[in-house]
């Protein structure tokens, strides 16, 4: 079957098979920032933004992306570089495996709530597992990132 969707602002009309998962479609189309970690909706590594909401692409049927607007990390290169600086400053990017999903979820949080409390930051980021940092450095990095954004605004 054929679907039409927008990825990072560009139109695509790929052929998919009925039980294809969006993660596989995006990778087939060359969006390799989207990675499979657990494949069971637990780790957050496959996070993308679909119609302004963060979702786990390892569980979204590709057929459901028909007519949707999708963003992957490739569509947010400048923003990703900015967030990465805060992660680096706090030692929150160690092996880096969790970073693509983590950064996508930070971007989704910023879209939904540009002025989050510390509790709201934690609530949002709990869906991204990280085996290295123990989360405190990620939390500090995001608290500093959002404080910086508020100063800029």
């Amino acid at each position: 079957m054929k679907i039409r969707l927008k990825i990072n602002g560009k139109d695509f009309a790929p052929h998919i098979y009925p039980s294809m998962i969006l993660l596989d479609l995006l990778r087939d189309l060359g969006f390799k920032s989207v990675k499979r970690g657990c494949g069971t909706t637990n780790c957050g590594l496959c996070t993308i933004i679909m119609d302004n909401k963060s979702v786990l692409s390892c569980s979204v049927p590709a057929a459901r992306a028909d007519g949707k607007e999708i963003y992957t990390l490739e569509g947010f290169q400048d923003k990703a570089a900015e967030i990465a600086e805060f992660l680096a400053d706090e030692g929150a990017d160690q092996c880096g495996f969790c970073a693509p999903g983590f950064v996508m979820n930070v971007i989704a949080l910023e879209k939904e709530n540009p002025n989050p409390t510390e509790k709201e930051i934690d609530e949002y980021l709990v869906g991204n597992l990280c085996r290295c940092t123990g989360y405190m450095s990620q939390h500090r990095a995001m608290a500093r990132y959002f404080a910086h954004k508020q100063k800029e605004a």
Binding site: G44, S54, L56, L125, N128
Partner: peptide, 12 residues
């Protein structure tokens, strides 16, 4: 509802 996995999960 807020402890069910993560926001991305609950968005679906």
């Amino acid at each position: 509802l807020g402890h069910i996995v993560g926001v991305q999960f609950r968005n679906s």
